[in-house]
């Protein structure tokens, strides 16, 4: 070691000390902009192995996630739902900012695995099949809730969750809430603001609220007067006993 090398190392240490606060601050800003959100912890290492973990750590986690994702797809073709979940957990830990992964993982659990569980020919007792089905609904819900935690700035997962509550849990109040949160995004497709009221119409105690909202949309003009909106308007008018003279929308007489 020459004297210069010692000085060089000292300079590097000083540079390290100068950059440290800047880097810590930059890291915070990166995280605030949703960078570096991956959870690279020991439980992930168990799932993806030493090599995969090392690759993920050295800046290739997107690639590792893709490989696992393709693997999960192979498992899907063999309907190995449990193994798929292991892959999904790893993939979503690696790429928490990938909405597609959360969304698809939830879809596979909530819509595919749940149906398979309900139709399981090896399980004769319906109660147990129903229970299994409900567990898969919950898994789907879990993925979407965690996905939203990591991606609160994207509407897609709110919409997926609303759909899951609507179709699977039949929980229209929650579906209405999540459609409303979806609709609050400027870039969300326009139909979500109608969907929230269709669901609200089926949420006990909120019929009046739904009716007024739908009526407001109806008054906005032809663009909003879509068949489903008209259908719910008609149903709510009856349900809320709106006097005939106050009925804005007159449903066509049923075809003879």
């Amino acid at each position: 070691m020459t004297r210069r090398m010692v000085i060089a190392i000292l300079v590097l240490l000083v540079f390290g000390a100068v950059r440290m606060p800047f880097e810590a601050e930059l890291e915070k800003e990166h995280k605030a902009a949703y960078f570096h959100g991956a959870k690279l912890d020991l439980s992930l290492r168990e799932k993806i192995g030493q090599m995969g973990f090392l690759a993920a750590l050295s800046g290739f986690r997107a690639f590792v996630a893709d490989v696992l994702w393709i693997h999960a797809h192979v498992l899907w073709e063999r309907t190995e739902w449990g193994a798929m979940k292991v892959d999904f957990d790893a993939v979503t830990s690696l790429q928490p900012r990938c909405v597609l992964f959360w969304s698809q993982a939830a879809w596979h659990m909530g819509f595919n695995a749940s149906v398979a569980a309900f139709e399981d020919p090896k399980q004769p007792r319906e109660a147990l099949r129903l229970k299994a089905q409900h567990e898969y609904f919950k898994l789907g819900e879990d993925y979407l809730l965690h996905g939203i935690e990591n991606n609160p700035d994207v509407y897609n997962l709110y919409a997926d969750l609303a759909l899951l509550y609507e179709m699977k849990f039949k929980d229209h109040c929650k579906a209405a809430e999540y459609y409303a949160r979806t609709a609050a995004f400027k870039n969300a497709p326009v139909f979500y603001h109608r969907f929230q009221y269709y669901e609200l119409a089926q949420c006990p105690g909120h019929e009046r609220e739904a009716y007024e909202a739908l009526l407001k949309l109806y008054k906005e003009g032809e663009n909003e007067r879509l068949p489903t909106l008209l259908k719910w308007l008609g149903i709510l008018q009856e349900k809320l006993n709106v006097p005939a003279d106050q009925k804005i929308y007159i449903p066509p007489a049923p075809n003879p």
């Binding site: 240490l13 000390a17 890291e27 949703y34 800046g59 290739f60 997107a62 900012r97 990938c98």
Partner: peptide, 18 residues
């Protein structure tokens, strides 16, 4: 102090997913 923070220059994984 001695090792560079390379993670701060690893942004593309997150950029690809939007």
């Amino acid at each position: 102090l001695l090792i560079p923070d390379l993670n701060s220059l690893t942004l593309v994984d997150d950029i690809v997913v939007g």
